[in-house]
């Protein structure tokens, strides 16, 4: 940015050229399926330079070779972490929740005997915003909720996150995307802008500690109809992605659905699932 103040003079200026940006963009796309638009250039450069400084590389070429040929792939994962934003709040990526009530639930019921429970798994559920959003959405926007039993299982590897999820107390930021009437109907305001979810809803999500990469943990995760697995696989290395995709496949009933995060795609992971397009979202289906 041209300003060379006194304090910065000791730090060598690192620049990413147009050609280097192109190289990185193609590589990142090939590996993740995420393609940065030209408008993201500043964002990408800034993060690349941040990592170069942290790892101690003075030029792009040297750093990129380090990323490309590192056997563990750790530095690449660091970049994925930096280049993607991962935060959780109620009704995040709402189009997928819409897709669930508008299309997926209907298809799921179509293949079930009457009276059979529909099972939904939210993984990773972090502090609970996602599974509770699923519950709220079903209650408020799915017209058949009164005829059908729905079980929501939510899991995370982080037991502290699970404790918070069970407690059901959320910050103002976390609930900021909820319509006010939902907030009013299901939450109790607390001091400091916090909100506590009502007991009834908290009891309708079954929180469990599960490491998606550990077969001992996942063997019991079976017979699901819909799995929300958003913004997790992208942070895994290749072997773990494969294993996790297999695990999701096994956890689903035939015809069941997986929803990934909006920047994620199965296209860099597996062709086990059928790609389905619904009005609101692209969803992956275990073949019937």
């Amino acid at each position: 940015m041209g300003h060379s103040g006194v304090a910065r003079e000791s730090v060598p200026e690192i620049r990413v050229t147009d050609a280097e940006f192109e190289r990185f963009r193609d590589y990142f796309y090939r590996k993740t399926g995420i393609r940065f638009e030209d408008s993201k250039r500043y964002f990408v450069d800034k993060r690349l330079i941040q990592r170069m400084r942290q790892v101690g590389h003075e030029g792009f070429r040297e750093y990129f070779a380090f990323v490309r040929f590192q056997a563990s792939g750790k530095e690449f994962q660091e970049l994925v972490n930096l280049m993607t934003v991962n935060e959780t709040y109620f009704f995040r990526e709402e189009y997928q929740l819409k897709c669930m009530v508008n299309a997926l639930m209907g298809e799921v019921l179509h293949h079930k005997r009457s009276g059979e429970t529909v099972r939904i798994w939210s993984v990773p559920c972090s502090t609970g915003e996602e599974p509770y959003s699923i519950a709220l959405y079903l209650l408020e926007f799915w017209d058949r909720i009164d005829e059908v039993d729905v079980e929501i299982v939510a899991s995370d590897i982080d037991t502290q996150a699970l404790e918070k999820a069970r407690a059901g107390v959320f910050s103002r930021r976390s609930v900021s995307h909820l319509p006010p009437w939902i907030l009013k109907k299901y939450f109790e305001p607390l001091a400091g802008g916090y909100h506590r979810l009502c007991d009834d809803l908290r009891a309708s999500v079954d929180f469990r500690r599960v490491n998606l990469c550990d077969p001992r943990d996942t063997r019991g995760m079976r017979d699901f109809d819909v799995i929300f697995c958003r913004n997790l696989l992208i942070y895994f290395d290749e072997a773990s992605q494969r294993r996790a995709a297999e695990t999701l496949y096994d956890a689903l009933n035939p015809g069941g659905f997986v929803l990934l995060g909006h920047s994620e795609s199965m296209s860099r992971i597996t062709s086990l699932f059928k790609v389905r397009r619904f009005e609101d979202a692209i969803v992956y289906q275990k073949p019937l």
Partner: peptide, 16 residues
Amino acid sequence: MGLVKRAEHRAAPSRP
């Protein structure tokens, strides 16, 4: 009918 509660007896997840 509706959301199944944690306390209720949930279906056994895995068929023998």
